[in-house]
Computed example of a mutant assay.
Amino acid sequence: MSAPLTEPPIRCAVVATSTGSLDELSDLDDLLYILRLNIHMNGLVYADGLDLHPEAFYQSQTEHPEGETRTSPPSEAAVRSLFRQIRNAGYREIIVTTLSGRISDTVNTVRKVAAETARDIQTYIVDTGTACIAEGHFALEAVKLLRQGFAAADVVEHLERLKPGAEIVFSVHSRAHLRRLPHLNTTEKFVAGLLDLKPVLRFYDGQFSRVDIGRKTENTLDALVESAAAALRQKPVRLYGLYGGNRALYENLAERLHRKTGIMPKAFPISPVIGAHIGPDAVGIARIDKPL
């Protein structure tokens, strides 16, 4: 990355999608805006993390595990409105960090609106290839570098270099949501549900893969911890914790991780849009490689 500018010639804002779990930060920078995805429940549409906070969403999921919930990207109108708000605030550039385009059409909606508004504001779009707080890390990194005086194009170049070092490992403890997971074939889903097995999954570069599978919750948590410990042994990494509606389960995971590595990562709730697909009892660890 080139040296920072002493006085950035163009003001630049950062837009993160709501799946990045950044609503939980009490000191959001005024450069940072949140683009909301949608939750559809009981005939109503909720803005992810705004109209429907994770705590309320997961309580509903626990009480009504068979309830029908679906999600959708932000509308083009919502993206246009947010871009207009940012332009009216005096910004002339936007860096947008989105959840993986392999699991959501959000990035394509943003690209369409960015092309329409190119005369008014220059938009840089980074498909992070990930989700949850791993995704949110990209937006936080962008804000940090802009505050240090780096040009938007250089910030985006840096974010692109971070993408190969971002991954999430997590476990799914809900049978109902296990059946919805796209990475397990029908036989695997049936056997796992029949035997009450709990898969440990990896989300990397927009794709799911199975890391391990265990009968007991303790086995599952230990597999998550070992995955994080292995990453730490290989290179310097930043770790984040993530949890759905079962904070006690996450605290169990965090304690095991601390005993193993001496690290107690900051924990972030999984947004309702992501939780709708993986269930109320999902817990995990996100890692981002630290630049050398």
Rank of each mutant, 00 (worst) to 15 (best):
F208L: 10
H277R: 12
L52S: 02
D196E: 15
V14T: 02
T220M: 14
P9H: 04
L162I: 02
H258W: 09
L44S: 05
I10R: 15
G284A: 05
T220S: 15
A115I: 03
K235F: 09
D27E: 14
E255A: 08
T187S: 07
A139Q: 05
V45A: 04
A176K: 11
V143I: 13
T117R: 08
V110K: 00
F83K: 03
Q61C: 13
K189C: 07
A176H: 11
R102T: 11
A47E: 12
L99E: 11
D29V: 00
T109A: 07
S26G: 12
H158F: 13
G129I: 04
N88R: 15
R256K: 15
T123Q: 04
D48W: 00
M1C: 11
G206S: 07
V156I: 07
I125E: 07
S2V: 02
P280C: 08
L99D: 05
L197Y: 13
T123I: 09
T106Q: 10
P272T: 03
I125D: 08
R175I: 06
N108G: 00
I125L: 09
Y250S: 01
K216Y: 13
Q148W: 00
E7G: 00
V79F: 02
Y91V: 02
S60M: 11
Q234V: 14
G101Q: 03
A254N: 10
H64D: 09
V200M: 03
T261C: 02
V96Q: 00
N38L: 14
E7Q: 07
L257Q: 03
A231I: 09
R179Y: 06
V237F: 13
L145K: 09
I133C: 02
D281V: 05
E157N: 10
L50E: 11
V143C: 08
R111K: 00
S26M: 10
G245N: 10
D222A: 15
P4K: 03
R161M: 11
V273Q: 06
T109C: 10
L201F: 12
V273T: 13
V126R: 02
M41Q: 06
E63H: 14
R147E: 05
F150W: 04
R233K: 13
R92C: 07
E68C: 08
K112H: 07
I95Q: 01
C12A: 10
G43Y: 05
R179T: 06
V225Y: 04
T130D: 12
L221V: 12
V96M: 02
A223E: 14
I103G: 01
L82N: 01
D27Y: 08
E24A: 15
D30E: 06
Q59F: 13
E135I: 07
L99Y: 09
A47R: 14
P236G: 11
I95V: 05
R287P: 09
A78P: 10
D29S: 09
E255K: 08
L37Y: 12
Y204K: 15
L162K: 01
L37E: 13
H137D: 14
V283P: 05
R180G: 04
G275C: 09
Y250C: 02
P74M: 04
I288F: 03
P54K: 04
N38D: 13
S75D: 10
S60H: 10
L221T: 11
P4T: 06
D51P: 07
L159G: 01
D289W: 07
L140G: 05
Y58A: 01
D23P: 04
A192K: 10
